[in-house]
């Protein structure tokens, strides 16, 4: 874009450093010779579109994070959400994480996410390996049985009747077991397992290694990337689970973060727990302050942001596409 980096560098009194230097000294874009240069209008249109699109994602997140970190004065001065930093504090986070409804919900969500992901990933890897050898006994039948669940689901009512019949209402297991198996994720792993070079596995078999041992010592270590991907898919699913919690969890003390978010931010209820005795140290009668509400939103976003770079890495590996095609 900067057509003459050298002249700009001469004009500047100090040679640019760091990021700027990299930007100035980077290689000029290589447009293939057969490609005509786009007109200025097209280029401007393109960049305006891209700025609008990325801004539409980043701006709301920016203002929410900033408001959660702002002092009450800054929020009052802005008349609501803050867009320019003006007095920062972490007191909202200190308040919600020092015990009470939100802290408990964070604990519940952590349990569901960690236990659920562990169970789901383990059973999925096992099934994927168990079904990865063409011609093994019953493998077509079992595969068919798994795939059917992708196209036909029982529906809300029978699920509810089953979960209540099993006595899992108000149990956190109701948020884990019914969604523990995703046919889709099993197929992703199975596809990957089937693409592994059979030579290594056959030689291990000849050496007398059983299937369990082959899976644990050869196949699983080779499949870290795909395992990470399904762990993320499962993890995000458990973390975001909302409707099942509405359906199966009546007890406020067992609410996951998403339900707390809905009650106290979306519906603007005040932070009073079911017992009434242990309220958060907030204005109990009124809805929580904007900073605290936004801090709850941030808590529900941050774990996603933390794992996100790992999903990113697998963009190009084609796993996502292979996954969609089944």
């Amino acid at each position: 874009m900067s057509a003459h980096p050298s002249t700009e560098m001469m004009v500047k009194p100090h040679p640019p450093q760091g990021v700027i230097a990299k930007l100035k000294n980077r290689e000029p874009i290589k447009r293939p010779i057969w490609q005509e240069k786009p007109s200025l209008a097209v280029t401007i249109g393109k960049f305006v579109t891209l700025i609008v699109v990325t801004g539409a994602v980043l701006f709301p997140l920016w203002t929410i994070v900033l408001t959660s970190l702002s002092t009450q004065e800054a929020i009052n001065a802005a008349g609501g959400l803050v867009i320019i930093p003006n007095g920062l504090t972490i007191s909202a986070y200190v308040q919600i994480l020092s015990g009470g409804v939100v802290s408990r919900a964070v604990g519940v969500t952590m349990f569901i996410t960690l236990a659920g992901t562990a169970i789901s990933v383990i059973v999925s890897i096992l099934a994927a390996w168990g079904l990865s050898r063409p011609g093994s006994l019953f493998h077509r039948t079992i595969l068919f049985m798994i795939i059917i669940t992708m196209f036909f689901s029982a529906g809300i009512i029978p699920m509810y009747l089953l979960v209540s019949g099993l006595g899992l209402i108000n149990s956190l297991w109701a948020l884990i077991l019914p969604t523990a198996v995703s046919a889709f994720n099993i197929l992703i792993v199975r596809n990957f397992f089937m693409s592994i070079d059979q030579g290594i596995i056959d030689s291990a078999r000849i050496d007398g290694a059983g299937e369990w041992r082959i899976l644990a010592t050869i196949v699983a270590p080779m499949s870290k990337a795909v395992i990470a991907v399904i762990a993320l898919f499962y993890g995000v699913g458990f973390f975001n689970a909302f409707f099942n919690a509405i359906l199966y969890i009546n007890d406020n003390d067992k609410w996951p973060l998403q339900l707390v978010l809905r009650a106290y931010v979306l519906q603007g209820q005040s932070f009073v727990s079911s017992g009434g005795a242990d309220t958060v140290a907030l204005n109990q009668a009124q809805p929580a302050s904007l900073a605290i509400q936004m801090a709850v939103v941030v808590l529900a976003v941050v774990p996603i942001l933390l794992v996100y770079p790992f999903v990113q890495r697998h963009f190009k590996s084609g796993i996502l596409i292979g996954a969609i095609k089944g």
């Binding site: 099934a127 168990g130 093994s136 006994l137 669940t149 089953l162 369990w212």
Partner: peptide, 28 residues
């Protein structure tokens, strides 16, 4: 193939309980 079959058992059990039993539950 019994070890391969054994590996599929947890998923089969979960699917039978949480996918196939509710499908039958549609009799309601």
């Amino acid at each position: 193939d019994r070890s391969l079959l054994a590996m599929s058992v947890p998923v089969i059990v979960l699917l039978v309980i949480f996918a196939y039993v509710p499908m039958l539950g549609n009799v309601v």
